[in-house]
């Protein structure tokens, strides 16, 4: 938690000086998590990148508001969610669907033996979860955030984060097992 407070302090200092280096610090501290969060909402790596770009443009444009935010983390995650929802509305998408040419889930470097699931199938199954469960799973599993971290980012209680994760993972496991031969 301390490193996060340190980096937030550095970001706030830069914002108070109106120094654009704040963008670099925000990127270092948050870009990977915001991109994963946007990917979880949109189920598209390409759209998540576009969302991240829009978020950074908004940060630059509304930096005064960011400087006044009680929690930088919660503010940035809320911005990302709003931008992702805007993109969904703009595209006229009601349900997320996974495009195999635009996978937001890819094989890790050393896939474990005995796991027949391929990335497309796993991405498809994750996409069938409610977004509130999917985003908690993605932040926990792929960005290794704690439930406290996730709770702070999404403005929910740690218990809510944990139960969304548990329900989501249970569903996912059942669906994965059902899909196996």
């Amino acid at each position: 938690m301390q490193p996060e407070q340190d980096s937030d302090g550095r970001i706030r200092d830069a914002l108070s000086r109106d120094d654009p280096v704040a963008l670099d610090w925000i990127w270092e501290a948050y870009a990977a998590r915001l991109l994963a969060f946007a990917s979880a909402i949109l189920c598209s790596h390409h759209d998540a990148e576009e969302t991240l770009q829009n978020v950074f443009l908004k940060i630059a444009r509304n930096r005064d508001r960011l400087a006044d935010a009680v929690s930088l983390k919660a503010y940035l995650f809320t911005m990302t969610r709003n931008e992702a929802c805007t993109l969904i509305r703009k595209r006229g998408r009601r349900e997320v669907s996974v495009d195999p040419r635009d996978l937001w889930l890819v094989p890790a470097g050393n896939p474990e033996p005995g796991l027949p699931e391929d990335a497309e199938a796993a991405a498809q199954r994750l996409a069938t979860l409610p977004v509130r469960q999917r985003d908690v799973i993605v932040l926990k599993v792929f960005r290794e955030m704690t439930f406290d971290d996730i709770a702070g980012a999404l403005d929910i209680s740690p218990n809510t984060a944990a139960s969304r994760y548990r329900y989501g993972m249970d569903k996912l496991k059942r669906r994965m097992n059902r899909g196996r031969p």
Binding site: W27, L35, V106, P107, A122, M169
Partner: peptide, 20 residues
């Protein structure tokens, strides 16, 4: 907590340097 190993063989790509 449920076992995460079913997802551990995948990753969500991080931001590429050119995207940064």
């Amino acid at each position: 907590m449920p076992d995460e190993s079913i997802l551990k063989s995948f990753r969500v790509p991080g931001p590429a340097p050119e995207l940064r």
